[in-house]
Design a protein around this nucleic acid. Structure first.
Length: 275
DNA sequence: ACATGAGCCTGTGGGC
DNA sequence: TGCCCACAGGCTCATG
């Protein structure tokens, strides 16, 4: 099964993929197809974006922020199945679940989202929108002390705490599982019982896991036409996520990967080396 | 204030 | 072969 769960590295990959084609360019011929995503698309969306020049394309957590020269920011969240296609011409033929299509110079860019958990929003104040309002620090910017303090704030299991975007931005089920496995921390361990030394190791491993995934994504960007959300590339290097009943890959560990449910979501871990 | 769980949505894959 | 249904999960909202 090809999964396409846009967490921080996937969103970063999309941003890096589209930024060179969009920054400094004007958006032309934007169309929205009348299907509702998570929220209805604002009626003035196309008129707000059409002909605006793109100042920057950035990522914050799992959100894409496209800053325009008309004081507006176009916010996109990819949900769990959203992806972006770059087509090397102005010829475009709609396929199923395409929701927004626009042109920059001679390229066509398309947002596709089958499950429609994604979101599109135009605002003057992106920091007030949705979970951006209370979004926690970026993993690449947070300090160990900050991270530790945020983990101290809750008595939930560490797995749930790491998924909480207020504690740290950008992590989802896959990279939380991988990071906890790499660090040897059980996903059921209570967040505020983590020692600062373990928080430090966990923080370092989160960075390692994210960087590895971003790097893997970057290599697929060489052919930018492949900016198509087929982000299964990282799947080959998943150590625990979706690996139920397989042997633990850690050196010296003869454990088996278990799947449990936490807050209604699957958690994968090795009970032997993750205590 | 904090924690939990349902619901949104469609494609996939296993079981029969 | 084809049907059915559990499952995937980020986020919001309602409830405890």
């Amino acid at each position: 099964m090809i999964t396409n769960l846009p967490e921080l590295p996937e969103v970063e990959t999309v941003v890096r993929g589209i930024a060179p084609f969009m920054e400094g360019k004007a958006i032309r011929q934007i169309s929205v197809f009348p299907t509702k995503l998570r929220n209805p698309i604002q009626p003035f969306f196309t008129s707000a974006v059409e002909n605006a020049k793109v100042l920057s394309v950035k990522r914050r957590g799992k959100y894409i922020l496209i800053c325009l020269n008309n004081n507006l920011t176009w916010i996109t969240h990819l949900g769990m199945s959203g992806y972006v296609k770059i087509i090397d011409s102005d010829y475009y033929k709609k396929v199923k679940h395409d929701h927004v299509v626009w042109q920059v110079e001679n390229k066509t860019i398309v947002l596709n989202d089958a499950r429609r958990f994604g979101d599109i929003f135009i605002t003057e104040n992106p920091n007030d929108y949705g979970s951006l309002k209370s979004m926690g620090p970026e993993p690449f910017e947070i300090t160990v002390n900050q991270f530790y303090e945020n983990l101290q704030k809750t008595s939930r299991p560490i797995k749930n705490a790491l998924l909480d975007q207020k504690i740290i931005a950008g992590l989802g089920n896959i990279y939380v599982a991988e990071s906890l496995w790499l660090t040897g921390i059980s996903p059921t361990k209570i967040s505020n019982s983590i020692k600062i030394s373990d928080a430090k190791k966990l923080m370092e491993n989160i960075i390692i896991v994210l960087n590895k995934a971003i790097y893997a994504g970057g290599t697929t960007l060489k052919d930018h036409r492949q900016t198509n959300g087929e982000l299964g590339y990282f799947q080959q290097s998943l150590m625990v996520y979706n690996q139920e009943n397989k042997p633990c890959q850690k050196n010296q560990c003869d454990g088996i990967i278990y799947r449990i449910i936490q807050s209604g979501r699957s958690t994968f871990f090795c009970p032997k080396c993750q205590q």
